[in-house]
């Protein structure tokens, strides 16, 4: 049970990092300022969890 939750947690952090990187790539590629702002805002909770702040 504990091993399983540890494995899931690790996968979860890897997944968060992956999605965060995708959003940063999209932010770089984007041409509209509304989209760029949206990427930055959506990125925040991902980074907060990745850095174990919230």
């Amino acid at each position: 049970m504990n091993l399983l939750t540890t494995v899931i947690s690790i996968c979860y952090y890897v997944f968060i990092a992956y999605v965060a990187i995708l959003m940063i790539i999209n932010l770089i590629r984007s041409r509209k300022w509304e989209q760029e702002l949206l990427y930055v805002i959506v990125l925040l909770p991902f980074l907060l969890r990745l850095f174990r702040l919230k």
Binding site: L27, I28, S30, W33, E36, L37, I41, L44, L48, L53
Partner: peptide, 28 residues
């Protein structure tokens, strides 16, 4: 366009630092 991206990213970073600092100091 690069400047715009930098400004928007700086805004996000500021929110991240302010919010993150608040969460970190609460936990510690």
């Amino acid at each position: 366009m690069l400047l715009r991206k930098l400004i928007i990213s700086a805004f996000g970073l500021t929110v991240l630092i302010l919010g993150g600092h608040s969460f970190y100091s609460h936990r510690h």
